[in-house]
Design a protein around this nucleic acid. Structure first.
Length: 816
RNA sequence: GCCCGGGUGGCGAAAAGGCAGACGCGAAGGACUUAAAAUCCUUUUCCCCUUGCGGGGAGUGCGGGUUCGAUUCCCGCCCCGGGCACCA
């Protein structure tokens, strides 16, 4: 092939054969370890992270290819800019998804997962990613989950892991507990089964303790607004007050949380959640029976009906009363399921005049409704048709000492006033709950805890890690709420690390999201067995420079990763507290206007497309569909255009001449293209970057001209991040040795990138009437004269223009 | 209900407040070719006037506004996609 010298004439070169080129370079990269940087000595390290895939049996999804290509282009671009780029990959192979599939096909996950991983590796290599395969990891590898267990122990030591009995979400189909984040509309996010409420002993991580910081850091980390907004909403900060209402005829008091202390004069009744501990105490003898019946019904009602079903208000009067600390009046106490035990204090003061739910309830049960806020144009006696819930613009009424105050001021004054008498204090509440990490399943890292009858709960000593997951045949979960591991005495009976007597292992495994909450810390340090992450490596490579992944992980994975990183930071293991400096979410890839799914049978298998067109063409096509962050619609119709572009690139590199001087106007276009492709690639505007390269190609080959070497060579470099195989091949054929990624991104000359002459748009009264060809730096007077010299423009101008708008280098607007 | 996105040719899409539709697909015509492929050259938002050359008007979901000038900014709606949802 070396006979294809740059000076060979047209038609003497073989045509572009993607499969041969791609195979050759994938082998070359592997043999030369082209993509395995020296992690200990990199001077300008750049950590390019992509969300590791779950290795499903179906193989790589085209959506994965879309996401990984988007990552890879950025990583390759950074490398051409002179960074040492580390682009690792791994497999998120533990979890219910894998286990359920293994149960379905009747193959043990320990057998199934390695097969799937092997298939994924093969497919990933074909995409041509700049992956450093020497740092691959799998969360199911004992060498990995040893450290997942270690992290659990760190949280335990820090007091951030605790065991508690709590109402938890139980999926009767998966037969395990789910975190709140994993319940979608009251159903299991995995299988769609309606989730039940169960009271079980569980392991929790105290993520709520980090809520203020998790929230505060969102203000400065460089993430897309969409993602930070989703996290903010999930953390759900509410500022308000806790207020105590004394129970009439008792020493007890009911504490409520409200964001509207300014409306307390309108609190005409109270509501307790059915699970509230004071329900029984407040209930009067005559109402107790009815109350108990209601509570029983409510707690049995599945969560879907209660949370997302019809919003019909139900409830029962307890027969008891409490005293409104602002008015001194007795208000009835009700029990109703529209108040949730898990939020705030599980009790509310109901203000039907200014809360829609309270109003609906009050109307259903005939409770008094009082106006205590008047909006603009309203007064204390304006009848309420709907609940007036506006916070701004309202003034407090019917609230004797505070009448006339704006709501914001009233809030502060009323809390202070009640506070002086010990009835209230300002407080902040979050919607975020502690993270339930226990899973009563098999396919996960065993939680490293031992229960001893003599010594109590013991952490497994670090030297005994990992607690290996035993290869058991009957790993099917049952309805007992206890992990299948509990059926294996030979595994769970173990000597107590403290006293040596026989004790029992914890049989729950941890949530998959814990596996993925720290994998980015492990990548640079995969070769170390004696530490989770090496201090020097971590210092050099972390935090991650850019992380690109799916928006579906905006609250789950990303929040947990941030939390674990913060904890490790606080314990002195890390010197940063945010793991991902920059995060961008790619959009969703759909097909012919519809979401891809197995049931619809419209899932695209990347293999056949790569086979048919080549990886470079598919990479270009996926990126050309639209902005990366907006996703795209996979329609095969557009692929041919990308192949045509690469064919023309191939032809140009072979037909070009090295003996002439490059064309000046082509060189101008080249420099503008270098600038645009660089800028666009940097902001993930891959679609417009590709368009710019195509435009340049059109210029280059316009009218069947034969391009010059100096016109073609830089284009090969611009294309390299997008279509790495063909770029490598052409770079070699152009006479270079070594990978093109060791070369430097072409620099653009600003002087060459600007034209001397421009087409100036001329408007009359804002309407385009023509253009004039003038010097770039023409003065306004001359521009006007030039414009009026064009009959097609002049005919719209009668007399002298009243006003002239001149935007140098762009446009002239004559107002007549 | 609330919070994010988004509505632009036949299709995917571009446009620091400054020539709307770059670039690609598709379609039509042409050059080259015995022919085809490839390549290259035209045309391709809609409507009207004109035999033609050419000229005019409308147009970025709808209705207003700001501006010399709006796809872009503001106000009020409609529709589509996604997320959250009895969160006090």
């Amino acid at each position: 092939m070396t006979s294809s010298t740059p000076n060979s004439t047209a038609a003497s070169h073989a045509s572009y054969d993607p499969s041969a080129v791609e195979h050759k370079w994938q082998e070359r990269w592997r043999a030369d370890r082209t993509n395995s940087p020296d992690l200990d000595h990199a001077e300008r390290p750049f950590y390019q992270l992509m969300m590791f895939p779950y290795p499903s049996a179906e193989g790589l999804h085209i959506g994965n290819v879309f996401a990984f290509t988007g990552n890879d282009i950025y990583g390759r671009f950074q490398r051409l800019l002179g960074h040492t780029v580390f682009e690792p990959i791994g497999f998120d192979a533990f979890g219910i998804h894998s286990e359920n599939y293994a149960l379905k096909v009747g193959i043990h996950p320990m057998e199934l997962i390695p097969r799937n991983i092997e298939n994924f590796r093969r497919q990933l290599r074909r995409v041509g990613l700049m992956v450093d395969w020497s740092h691959e990891l799998s969360t199911t590898d004992p060498a990995y989950y040893k450290w997942t267990q270690w992290i659990f122990l760190q949280l335990l030591e820090r007091g951030l892991a605790y065991r508690g009995k709590a109402a938890v979400n139980w999926c009767p189909s998966c037969k395990t507990v789910l975190a709140n984040e994993q319940v979608v509309n009251g159903a299991c996010e995995r299988c769609g089964t309606i989730v039940e409420q169960r009271f079980l002993e569980q392991w929790f991580f105290r993520i709520t303790e980090y809520a203020p910081r998790l929230l505060a850091n969102l203000d400065w980390i460089d993430w897309s607004d969409k993602t930070t907004t989703a996290q903010r909403n999930w953390i759900g900060k509410s500022e308000g007050a806790e207020i105590d209402f004394a129970v009439a005829g008792s020493d007890a008091s009911i504490r409520v949380f409200t964001t509207r202390p300014d409306t307390i004069f309108g609190a005409t009744y109270m509501v307790l959640a059915p699970e509230h501990p004071l329900v029984d105490a407040v209930a009067s003898a005559s109402q107790r029976g009815a109350v108990r019946a209601y509570v029983e019904r409510a707690t049995k009602r599945d969560l879907v009906a209660r949370k997302v079903g019809d919003r019909e208000k139900t409830g029962v009067f307890t027969g008891g009363y409490a005293v409104n600390p602002a008015t001194g009046e007795r208000v009835p106490v009700w029990v109703a399921d529209y108040v949730l035990m898990e939020y705030g204090t599980g009790a509310i003061m109901a203000v039907p005049g200014h809360d829609e739910r309270d109003l609906a309830f009050a109307r259903t049960f005939g409770l008094p409704i009082v106006r205590v806020v008047a909006g603009p144009g309203e007064d204390a006696s304006t009848p309420l048709t709907d609940a007036y819930t506006d916070n701004e613009g309202g003034r407090v009424v019917n609230s004797p000492p505070f009448d006339g105050l704006a709501t914001d001021e009233a809030k502060a004054r009323i809390v202070a006033w009640l506070g002086e008498r010990g009835h209230a204090k300002a407080t902040v509440t979050y919607r975020l709950h502690d993270w339930t990490i226990s899973r009563q399943r098999y396919w996960g890292p065993p939680i490293p805890i031992i229960y001893c009858d003599a010594c109590g709960m013991q952490a497994v000593p670090e030297k005994d890690l990992p607690v290996l997951l035993p290869p058991i045949a009957d790993f099917r979960p049952d309805d007992s709420g206890i992990s299948p591991l509990a059926r294996h005495e030979e595994w769970y009976r173990v000597p107590c690390p403290e006293c040596g007597k026989m004790a029992r292992r914890e049989t729950d495994v941890s949530d998959t999201f814990l596996d993925s909450a720290w994998y980015f810390l492990r990548y640079p340090s995969t070769e170390f067995d004696d530490r989770p992450f090496d201090a020097d490596r971590t210092k050099r490579w972390l935090p991650v420079n850019i992380y690109i992944g799916g928006h579906e992980h905006a609250v789950l994975h990303l929040l947990y990763s941030r939390f674990i990183t913060m904890v490790l930071h606080d314990m002195g293991y890390l010197d940063f507290e945010e793991p991902f400096k920059r995060f961008r979410a790619h959009g969703l890839l759909i097909r012919n206007g519809a979401k891809m799914s197995k049931t619809k049978g419209n899932v695209v298998n990347p293999d056949e497309y790569i086979e048919r067109w080549g990886a470079d063409t598919i990479r270009l096509y996926l990126m050309y569909m639209g902005p990366l962050e907006e996703g795209g619609d996979f329609r095969e119709s557009g692929i041919s255009g990308m192949k045509r572009f690469l064919d023309r690139l191939w032809a140009s590199a072979h037909e070009m001449r090295s003996d002439g001087t490059p064309d000046e106007s082509v060189m101008r276009k080249l420099h503008r293209t270098i600038r645009k492709v660089g800028e666009d690639t940097n902001r993930l505007g891959y679609n417009t970057a590709i368009a710019a390269m195509m435009e340049y190609m059109n210029t280059l080959r316009s009218g069947e001209r034969v391009p010059q070497r100096a016109e073609v060579e830089p284009l090969v470099q611009l294309v390299a991040p997008y279509a790495p195989h063909i770029a490598e091949e052409l770079w070699e054929r152009l006479g270079h040795t070594g990978t093109i990624f060791a070369s430097r991104w072409p620099t653009f000359d600003p002087a060459l990138a600007t034209e001397d002459d421009i087409e100036l748009a001329v408007q009359v009264n804002g309407k385009l009437r023509g253009t004039v060809h003038v010097a770039r730096d023409i003065a306004q007077d001359q521009a006007v004269a030039a414009a009026l010299g064009v009959p097609g423009i002049a005919k719209f101008v009668t007399g002298t223009p009243r006003k002239v708008i001149f935007v140098a280098g762009r446009l002239l607007n004559l107002v007549v």
